[in-house]
């Protein structure tokens, strides 16, 4: 299943104007400076925000078409969304959070908790586990719903370096098994290069394919091989 996005939304300082295509089994990493409209784009895909004008189609299902006044509410889009700092439901245990939208598929929840290494914490409340463990649970919660599309909006940027590295590795492994399109937002260049199948730099609301190169060359004049790595993302794994 293929996600097609063509949207336009005026923001306070610039206009968000994006036309992209995210194929299945591909992790598209959206990268760009803070305030470039990355999160707004994700919220529009999820149905939490509406663009001024636009068209979003998933497979052959139209999610949004402002011309034909079609708007599929977030409930019906069946996607998984992991946010940077969205809280888990504070009144529920880790297990019940992960199982929140899993319906009768209890075995999936156990498998996910096991896989993300938080099964031993399943009876604890979210405020009694670490930030990394909460984000693991958030990923379980999103996946337990068996989504058709996975959105990850800077899911690890509030975590410490070591936890972030572990989770990034786990996500890379998981990626191979997911049949759906995954969209990952980050402002961390290393993270982007490490995870991306397809890189999509967004600056001031527009796709700017040259941005990565410019910004890294500027920072790293002394290490030309790094700029080369940007042109050839697979090379960056050597770092």
């Amino acid at each position: 299943m293929n996600l097609q996005i063509r949207i336009r939304k005026p923001l306070p300082h610039f206009e968000l104007s994006i036309d992209v295509n995210c194929p299945a089994e591909t992790m598209t990493v959206i990268i760009g400076p803070s305030g470039a409209g990355k999160t707004t784009l994700m919220r529009i895909i999820a149905g939490l925000d509406e663009p001024a004008e636009g068209f979003i189609q998933f497979g052959d299902e139209v999610w949004l078409d402002t011309k034909r006044r079609i708007f599929l509410p977030p409930q019906k889009r069946r996607l998984g969304y992991v946010f940077q700092d969205y809280p888990l439901f504070p009144h529920l245990s880790i297990h019940d959070n992960a199982a929140f939208a899993a319906g009768a598929r209890k075995d999936i929840v156990q498998k996910l908790l096991e896989r993300f290494g938080i099964r031993h914490l399943q009876d604890r409340k979210p405020d009694a586990v670490s930030g990394g463990e909460r984000q693991r649970c958030a990923i379980c919660q999103a996946l337990a719903r068996e989504p058709r599309l996975l959105l990850l909006d800077e899911p690890f940027s509030a975590l410490d370096v070591f936890t972030r590295r572990d989770l990034r590795d786990e996500l890379r492994n998981l990626k191979e098994e997911l049949r759906m399109p995954v969209i990952y937002v980050t402002h961390d260049v290393n993270e982007a290069l490490y995870l991306a199948d397809d890189l999509l730099p967004i600056v001031e609301g527009r796709v700017d394919r040259e941005w990565m190169q410019r910004s890294i060359v500027r920072v790293d004049d002394a290490r030309p091989e790094r700029a080369k790595a940007v042109r050839e993302p697979r090379l960056s794994l050597a770092y």
Partner: peptide, 15 residues
């Protein structure tokens, strides 16, 4: 109540 909890629940499919 944190409005993000409600957004989260909507994405998870709750009416």
């Amino acid at each position: 109540i944190d409005p993000r909890l409600i957004e989260s629940a909507r994405i998870l499919g709750l009416s």
